[in-house]
Design a protein around this nucleic acid. Structure first.
Lengths: 172, 172
DNA sequence: GCGAATTCGGTTACTATATAACGCGGGTGC
DNA sequence: GCACCCGCGTTATATAGTAACCGAATTCGC
């Protein structure tokens, strides 16, 4: 388990928060976009566009790649989801789950820790990391626009379960 | 301009250094691998696998995707090149250009700053960034194995040239 | 020398990821 | 009514990456 919404009510709350966010920014969270967002949020790990497409087809038989990519582009723009570049996969943004009214429309800096054993992906919002990177960029005169910080390794649960050995030893 | 070798002699030196590195680790820098490495190094920006393939075909008409991917895998393993995840592209490792004999075979932590205007990609080896990320991971009990830190923005040269406006205005 | 094992790379075919381009229908403004 | 924009269906295609099989060259053991 990693990121999935634990219950239907949590999901409903998250979708409502997303709706509110879109209204505030003058965007429309249409039925399709809502469906795709729900699929991303209910997964307990990042899902690829085609995995999402497969699931979307259950509700929307005619769905094709552009269907899901357009929805994903929208959700990315709205900051409701993130793309995990190392996995070519998409995951809900933890920040978006809160419906506090003040706009933190700024692209919040985040980092991902991806467990190579269980696939859990943890989103961090570590200020020190963001600051260090901003510092390093400034030192060479580079103006940051968007940062991608992702790490692969082993999560605490898998470490405790001795996954370090399991990963090396077992094929499955 | 960003990463390309400035001259034939620099290139030769870099290839010799790569050769030495491979010898030390018991690997073979074959003709194919050398060709692909040269193509990566002579580019002034990260190149995709298929761009490399196109260029490789000039020297090796029969080349196909596996040809270039196998060479790239080898070069990545040897730490001679890096993959830029955001671009699905490959770039020479600045560290590999130096032929100092001591083994820093450890995967050196690096960061990329990608200019959205000119495509230049700057490799940093900022300790503070690496340390901050390691710290953040440790705090949540996550064991790091490989980190990917990439940022998109504007390089100093493009900022000076007023690229901030140019990026918004001109298509080129 | 001869065969087994390994490494390298050519070749074919395929999977996965992502986008281009066209068109339709429904709203909005005038 | 009509021009316009938006959302989305639809078809086709581009780009990225792998699987699987094969043969040549080298090395190793004997």
């Amino acid at each position: 388990m990693a990121a999935g919404q634990g219950s239907a009510s949590e999901m409903a709350r998250a979708l409502d928060a997303a709706e509110a966010r879109c209204v505030r920014s003058g965007a429309q969270l249409t039925e399709l976009r809502r469906q795709v967002l729900a699929l991303v949020l209910e997964a307990d790990q990042p899902l690829g566009a085609y995995a999402l497409l497969d699931r979307l087809k259950a509700q929307r038989p005619g769905a094709a790649p552009p269907t899901v990519y357009r929805a994903l582009d929208f959700l990315l723009e709205q900051g409701l989801i993130h793309k995990v570049e190392r996995l070519n996969a998409f995951i809900g943004c933890v920040e978006a789950g809160h419906d506090h009214g003040h706009d933190h429309d700024h692209a919040h800096d985040h980092q991902f820790l991806i467990c190579g054993s269980c696939g859990a992906t943890i989103e961090l919002s570590d200020h020190a990391v963001a600051h260090a990177l901003a510092d390093a960029a400034r030192r060479v005169g580079f103006q940051l626009r968007k940062t991608t910080v992702e790490a692969e390794g082993l999560c605490a649960a898998c470490l405790a379960a001795g996954a370090g050995a399991a990963v090396a030893a077992s094929p499955g």
